[in-house]
């Protein structure tokens, strides 16, 4: 009995591996990309629709996307000015850097579950590349978030930040960050079709993750052995990277860059694989 089970597992793994290679091959071919590219106006229309419907227009959307980081920043500034005064130089800059990037992550991931289910009306009635739905969902949040980033950059020198050449590497890391978030969205939206209580789990996980990530405290404050575990978290890596760029004006170290790059590749790969494998069958369960 256990041997049969092992054999089954093994066969499954081999199957999956073959599929994974095939998938990677397919997604790499220009043909697949060309097909997606042909639908670029669909992505545009979906993004505009969402901004219009969900946020009643761009102006209000931008305002809402600003509200969240501003409120959080303000609260923690109060706490760390009056209750636990921080000794860190330019503490507000440190705080805002972490919170601005955390906001993008938490907003997309908080909504990620419902991406497929919310669009079931479309998915069940017409064929189009399904991958574009999570693309549009991430883009909506990204576009609105860019306003927050803009405001952040305006206040950046006022908070004591220095515009140095290091900032030029920022877009690359931001791109990686967005890719990572997108990959995670693929995974969570696919799983949510099967597991409808995933949403509550994610809400809790986001809470834990916020505190387990060095956003409102420096990673150096954490005991060494915990630090070593903490640094394995992709979100901690990213937060540290952004703090190094904006707060310390240092190029992120190669180690942490490699670690995060690996995370992104794994998550996007897993996301694409899961999505392409599960979604065609999930359609009938939406």
């Amino acid at each position: 009995m256990p041997t049969a089970w092992c054999a089954d597992c093994f066969n499954l793994c081999v199957d999956e591996l073959g599929l994974l290679i095939k998938m990677a091959y397919i997604t790499n071919t220009a043909g697949a990309f060309g097909r997606l590219w042909r639908y670029r106006d669909l992505v545009r229309n979906l993004v505009l629709k969402d901004i219009k419907v969900r946020y009643m227009g761009a102006a209000l959307g931008f305002a809402w996307s600003l509200a969240n980081p501003i409120v959080i920043t303000f609260m923690y500034l109060m706490i760390f000015t009056y209750i636990f005064p921080s000794t860190q130089p330019h503490f507000p800059l440190f705080l805002v850097t972490g919170i601005v990037h955390w906001t993008l992550f938490s907003q997309v991931i908080g909504q990620s579950c419902e991406v497929l289910v919310a669009n079931s009306g479309l998915i069940k009635k017409i064929y189009f590349p399904r991958l574009l739905i999570p693309v549009a969902s991430v883009l909506v949040n990204l576009v609105l978030w860019l306003a927050a980033l803009g405001v952040y950059l305006v206040f950046y020198p006022l908070l004591g930040g220095k515009f140095s050449l290091v900032l030029f590497v920022y877009p690359l890391y931001l791109l990686l960050f967005v890719a990572f978030i997108w990959g995670l969205t693929l995974i969570l939206s696919t799983l949510y079709v099967e597991f409808r209580d995933l949403k509550h789990l994610i809400e809790v996980a986001l809470q834990v993750l916020f505190w387990a990530t060095p956003i409102i405290y420096e990673v150096g404050r954490v005991p060494r052995h915990i630090q070593e575990v903490m640094i394995l978290s992709p979100l901690a890596e990213f937060t540290i990277i952004f703090q190094q760029i904006f707060y310390a004006n240092k190029l992120p170290s190669l180690n942490i860059t490699m670690a995060f790059f690996a995370w992104t590749v794994v998550v996007v790969g897993l996301g694409l694989w899961l999505f392409n494998r599960r979604v065609p069958e999930s359609v009938e369960r939406l």
């Binding site: 042909r38 639908y39 106006d41 669909l42 545009r44 229309n45 979906l46 629709k49 479309l122 017409i126 189009f128």
Partner: peptide, 12 residues
């Protein structure tokens, strides 16, 4: 109309 058309794969 635009949204529906683009679902069918048409450019704006």
């Amino acid at each position: 109309i635009y949204l529906n058309g683009s679902l069918y794969g048409y450019r704006n």
